[in-house]
Amino acid sequence: MHHIEIRNVTLVYDTPNGRVPGVRGVSFATAPSEFLCIVGPSGCGKTTLLNIIAGFLAPAEGEIRIGGKAVTGYGLDRGIVFQDFAQLFPWRTALGNVAFGLEMKGVPKAEREAIALEQLRLVKLEKFAGAYPHHLSGGMQQRVAIARALAYNPAVLLMDEPFAALDALTRDEMQRLLAEVWRATRKTVVYVTHNVAEAVYLADRVIVMTPHPGTIKAEVPIRLPRPRDPLSVEFLDYQKQLLRHLTQKEEAR
């Protein structure tokens, strides 16, 4: 059974300088609780694709189904984590940010704060529940954003390069934490990145996109036991394989 199904999705941006393709004829599907990574060169359409799945952009062609239901807009079945640290609401504490979705759902205050605190504990930030975002580091802000996207219990987690702007050390830590959170919550995750090591570390399966206008070039299942060792030979082999796909010129054109 599929959880997310993307069928032949195409999107074209209308700009003052004419029509710019965003993504072209993309199809893939995920199983429930699968961790799917999408890698591709800058500008190939990864963010566009994620925004289509999130429901912020309507594709010109093709369709998206989640749990069999066609996606027509944004909805509480999907949690979203953006690349930009500024995604948190500066006027809310970490706890207030995480509780936002539950508040919109009408969950009573005491209950939503208990759930939010639980989510903050999951990302190891319960001590910072009362802190405002500007007092948190970039990595901490992204962890709050993950907790926020999980708090209202969506079935799907969509993540757009959430750790790309972090330093390498923090990023490694974040990846470990995310792998743990995923194991604990069993969400279906679609994770966009252009870092192949990150993809191999996190994913059950990696989809490689071509340069702009993006289509799918290859699908690589990662058959490694978890937790994964980034220094193992197999890990490096997968990395090489993905890099080869990314750098290879497209033959048939």
């Binding site: 429901g55 944004y74 949690g79 936002f100």
Partner: peptide, 8 residues
């Protein structure tokens, strides 16, 4: 977008 995706 974040708020809308959370049902606001």
């Amino acid at each position: 977008r974040a708020a809308q995706s959370m049902g606001a």
